[in-house]
């Protein structure tokens, strides 16, 4: 029943009827969606619509009150966050999610944690295997830093980076974990439109190479419209619409949700 290698027809990530209740208040109700291999999906909605809550439920940081999450066919609803990450589902956070005191290089190297794990013996009496693993990680780190265009900043501590560079570093750290599905929470926040455009191009490059599929929570509409294959709209904790970017943009309900009834 569980398929470890999904064919293009089977979803990589499936959420079914996810519901989150905070002290009697329903934050998200019956949210379902699929993420297929090769896709970039945008999750959008007005502030407070429940987007980040959905992320938290999917990645185990706030287990869902009801509903199920399946990743590569396996039920991960009640798994702990680090276990979910180890299965290949990696997320970023809305507020800058890097280690501020570490340099760019160190941040990305730390992101390789899962590939670098050693036995106790390997940690304290490193042999050829540990050394080879460390060398591979250093190489991969340099490559990821390069891919995201951060090579010139490799030795800069993260707290000295510009906003745009920080966003790229967040993606770099997440990529270092070699995810199959990557979930980015407002990765373009604080970028100007030119930077956001370049950022979107970078994301498109990743799918199919570094990651199998990408799910974005984003407020920057032009980024979402230009980058995503499919868009899911949340409003008041419920799915309002779903479809290709141009369909969603033309959807009357979506316009109302964003602009208010009168304006639509």
């Amino acid at each position: 029943m569980s398929q470890t290698h999904p064919t293009p027809a089977t979803p990589l990530l499936e959420a079914d009827n996810l519901t989150m209740v905070f002290g009697g208040l329903i934050a998200v109700r019956d949210f379902s969606f699929r993420l297929m291999p090769g896709e970039i999906v945008g999750l959008i909605g007005p502030n407070g619509a429940g987007k980040t809550t959905c992320f938290n439920m999917i990645t185990g940081f706030c287990p869902a009150s009801a509903g199920t999450v399946r990743f590569k066919g396996a039920d991960i609803t009640r798994r702990r966050p680090f276990e979910i990450a180890r299965l290949g589902l990696v997320r970023s956070f809305q507020k800058t999610s890097v280690m501020k005191k570490l340099t760019v290089f160190e941040n990305v190297r730390t992101g390789h944690y899962m590939q670098g794990r050693q036995s106790l013996l390997g940690t304290f009496l490193p042999g050829a295997r540990t050394r080879a693993s460390e060398a591979r990680i250093a190489e991969s780190t340099a490559q990821i830093v390069e891919t995201l265009g951060l090579s010139h900043r490799a030795d800069a501590p993260a707290h000295l980076l510009s906003c745009g560079e920080l966003r790229l570093l967040e993606v770099a750290v997440a990529l270092a974990a070699k995810p199959e599905a990557l979930l980015l929470d407002e990765p373009a926040a604080g970028l100007n439109s030119h930077e956001a455009h370049l950022f979107g191009e970078t994301l498109k490059q990743l799918v199919g190479r570094a990651v199998t599929a990408l799910l974005l929570v984003e407020h920057n509409m032009s980024l979402v419209m230009n980058t995503c294959d499919r868009v899911v709209v949340l409003n008041f904790g419920q799915k309002l619409a779903e479809g290709r970017p141009e369909e969603v943009r033309a959807n009357r309900e979506v316009q109302e949700a964003y602009l208010g009834k009168a304006a639509a």
């Binding site: 966050p81 794990r117 304290f124 693993s133 997440a174």
Partner: peptide, 25 residues
């Protein structure tokens, strides 16, 4: 050895940000 190992980097990650640490496994 600890500080310069993968495990040591993991510990530093947890110290710097518990959330990020968990998100990278």
């Amino acid at each position: 050895r600890f500080v310069h190992s993968n495990a040591g980097r993991g510990a530093v990650a947890v110290r710097e940000s518990r959330f990020v640490a968990q998100s990278i496994g």
